[in-house]
Design a protein around this nucleic acid. Sequence first.
DNA 1: GTGAAAGCGCTAACAA
DNA 2: TTGTTAGCGCTTTCAC
Lengths: 339, 339
Amino acid sequence: MTGIEDVAALAGVSKATVSRALSGRGYVSPATRDRVSEAAASLGYVVSSSASSLVTGRSNNVGVIIPIINQWFFGSILDGVERALLERGYDLMLYNVSKSGEERSRVFEYFLVRKRVDAIIAVTLEITPEEARSLLALGKPIAGIGGPLEGIPTISIDDVAAARLATEHLLMLGHRDILHVGGDLAEQMDFHVHSKRLTGYLEAMEAAGIPAAETTFVATAFDIPGGYHVGKQVLGDPRRRPTAIFAAADEIAIGIILAARELGISVPDDLSVIGIDDHPLAELFGLTSIRQRPGEQGAQAVEFVIRQLEEPGWAPPPRHTDVPASLVTRSSTARPRVR
Amino acid sequence: MTGIEDVAALAGVSKATVSRALSGRGYVSPATRDRVSEAAASLGYVVSSSASSLVTGRSNNVGVIIPIINQWFFGSILDGVERALLERGYDLMLYNVSKSGEERSRVFEYFLVRKRVDAIIAVTLEITPEEARSLLALGKPIAGIGGPLEGIPTISIDDVAAARLATEHLLMLGHRDILHVGGDLAEQMDFHVHSKRLTGYLEAMEAAGIPAAETTFVATAFDIPGGYHVGKQVLGDPRRRPTAIFAAADEIAIGIILAARELGISVPDDLSVIGIDDHPLAELFGLTSIRQRPGEQGAQAVEFVIRQLEEPGWAPPPRHTDVPASLVTRSSTARPRVR
DNA sequence: GTGAAAGCGCTAACAA
DNA sequence: TTGTTAGCGCTTTCAC
């Protein structure tokens, strides 16, 4: 393996000059810089990252902790983070951590001590205030996606507001009998996304003057089969069927639409459906949805940590930032048929 | 940051002993080992990976190059790789590389030179023989998933055989008018998956004595919308409609089923459909499919590189390994209705 | 079984 | 503008 010494010899300068020339920090005359670059290129030299990290204390790695990879929302975040990181010359260390306490703390120990990452992006991971403090104490920038984290810059949509927006859209269409299908409140994702979306639904219903007794909530798995099974259960009896459903995720909504179709229920004539996320399949199903652009949230989180790393004085917004979530209307919501 | 020296002082031993005790290599008496571990724990000491890498030449990182994250097949591979790696104490550096030449070679330069990863797993990435040679020359273990790579241990299903299996299943049911919907041959994924699946289809058809003139192939996007659009196009005219479709991916097959349903075509009474992958949604759609277990392929690839790293004498199978692909029958395939 | 000492390959003062 | 020097924090011979 060719080292800095070889390059120095070939270029006829010292190791220090090579280091300066190649890293770009410190003064080097253009002429020698060129000579060094050429020598390095001709030898195929690349710095040893471990040697360089050892002395600088920088690894040029960012750790990403994420609970799920293979779901559109999470995959999109990861994708956005990856792109933004690579573009800025950082590598990404992936930690796929379920929320089990043990695995989690192992990862935190990794991060806390081993000098492997310069910064951390926690996706949908509710860090405890102590964990946050110890991370911050290490001086490693952190950013979170998915919900507010004490003392850490985070971004997400406002889940309550998004749910309200969705419900209001259905209300505005004239629906009063609106079912909310969401995630199991006992099996919360971090940040209580499930209960927040339920809250938004309840708030909108209440604001519309609909008595709490007429609100309905059913929990299911956060995917297409989950929605499908609920749909089959809930849409069977024409007399007791809601006129509209607000699903906490597009996948659920799509499952519901599939079930409705099988039951001969027309969407939107007999049933309006709205979801959250603006999943790629939403268009195919004409699904009205709340768009939240996970990839951009990922890129934003990268911005937070990298600027902190590279611009000494810069500090991210100290707290949570709500990114806008917008309503994308499609054919699954339309004025209901009068029954 | 607490260093090895602090631990040595607290335990009343030398740095060397701490290193031996904590890393497990070299003789240390059980008593001192315990004392050291305790001291380390009480100080919250963890080795600096850069210092350790610098001297050992090992980073305990494995680089994973993958062209797409957010699709079920790729996500499952990544998931399987991640799990297997973390279990063995390695970290995963993610490189999401599209096949553009420039980006690709940049990543290869990264890998080739920077001592950042101990091994590489290339997912669905057709490395050129020269690239392979230079990687191998560096002594870094490599494994590939998705197709054969000269001189590198790789695994995948046999795409030709899988396609043949799928087509034969339809033939066995009595179909003769079978359409193959696959990916665009011009926009090949690496390893020519599209043409291999087409080849398998053609081989099976020929073996069944069906003249080449009666085979049909339509290309589309490798996802649900892609299948849907082809379905709409191809299933419109009842007189010219095939009795069965072999889709090169479950997503395509599902799109076709959706289109068929909208057109009032019964699956499987009027149309049998089969796909490849055994996507989680296959069950919901009753889709018959060829199962290929991407997560296990990922774990297998990890096995290849890690054993090479850890068992000095061990060498992986020098060439390509075909993993079994099995037929999973569900309700989407049936004997053709006599028309 | 344990310690002393010599680096791993680089960067960052500091001098020149 | 460039070279000299002293480490970064650890592992690993080699003595003992």
